[in-house]
Write a protein that binds this DNA or RNA. Structure first.
Lengths: 189, 189
DNA sequence: AACGTAACACTAACGGTTAGTGTTTTGGAA
DNA sequence: TTCCAAAACACTAACCGTTAGTGTTACGTT
């Protein structure tokens, strides 16, 4: 078990990165639906099978780094101060996530996502996964008196807040407005 | 513009029905993922292209009649008595829908859906469509003082209630529990 | 130096979906 | 009745994402 360094792992990471960079560049240049997997593989100078050993699907090339989101949400629950109320902690995290993906740097990427049905559907199914892992974290929290159904409901409402805010004219304002509703729902549970 | 009946339309409907019936039978016999489009087309004695002129995708063969759901939800909003409060009307409708799809007759179909990733994802993206059309109906209702964002949020919450209740141990009870939360959220908006 | 394995390559295919190109059927107009 | 335009259907061939099968390097380990 030699620890981190190792030429092999560096090469693997480099290949993965090269594929992701090439894919994103081509997608932004020509449009997601106009670029085939074979195009990406050829331009990145790897075999198609190599590409699929690094990424599970064509869509995954776009959402390369979004396991982060999943972890950040569950950690907003598990790592919060013992006396910090739950919903505001979640609201803070959603605020940060919305801010991140409405930033100027991310704008072209999210425009591309909106333009492709395949990417929109993939993103939504990703969010479902996030909701489920958030739900698991909530159900497991011994400090919450609410029922499991209420926890699962809250998880979906929080993910809805993210999705709705991203499409709103004023994303940050929408987060606050929706969280007023979420807070009331959670209090009633 | 001669009105409805006409041999052509009857034949078309018959072809469509034969395809749907054949598909559902094969899927239940052998499993959704084990049956190819070419199998369905051959068994229904039509060309593959004909099949796709009646159904937009393989998954659509399973959810043949689910435009109804979409209409029922929007009509629960638009057709309710002038003085009937909104959320209870929606709750009644969700109750009915959950009851329908947990009935004995539908059980094998929904078991099949749960077993196939492709079908689960398709169903979820269908629900998104339903949420959007419900949101449109809500936003258009002049009797509602709430903001457009609040309306869209309610729409998603209602669809969540359906999805969560279907997976719950006690679906009918879950609908009531979740709608307590939805009611509170709507009141806070 | 030699071995085991992870990364990668290549070919070929599978399954859903569509384009292109007819052919038949049918409802309605002349 | 006859004829036309459109709709429904068929057929071939292909596209595209994805995977299986089968090697071939390149690296870390012993």
């Amino acid at each position: 078990m030699t620890v981190p360094t190792g030429r092999r792992e560096r090469k693997k990471a480099a290949t993965r990165q090269k594929i992701a960079d090439t894919a994103l560049r081509l997608f932004l240049e020509r449009g997601y639906d106009e670029v085939g997997i074979r195009d990406v593989a050829a331009e990145a100078d790897v075999a198609v099978t190599t590409l699929f050993s690094h990424f599970a699907s064509k869509e995954a090339l776009v959402f390369e780094r979004d396991d982060d989101f999943e972890q950040r949400l569950t950690r907003a629950v598990t790592d919060r101060a013992p006396d910090e109320p739950l919903v505001p902690a979640l609201r803070r995290e959603i605020h940060a996530m919305v801010l991140h993906c409405t930033a100027d740097g991310s704008a072209p990427i999210y425009r591309m996502i909106d333009e492709s049905r395949a990417l929109r559907e993939y993103e939504e199914s990703m969010r479902l996964r996030h909701a489920e892992s958030l739900a698991t974290a909530l159900v497991a929290d011994p400090g919450l008196p609410q029922s499991a159904t209420a926890c699962r409901t809250l998880a979906r409402f929080v993910i809805d807040a993210y999705a709705l805010a991203r499409d709103a004219a004023d994303p940050q304002g929408a987060v606050d407005e929706i969280f007023t509703m979420v807070e009331a729902a959670w209090a009633a549970a």
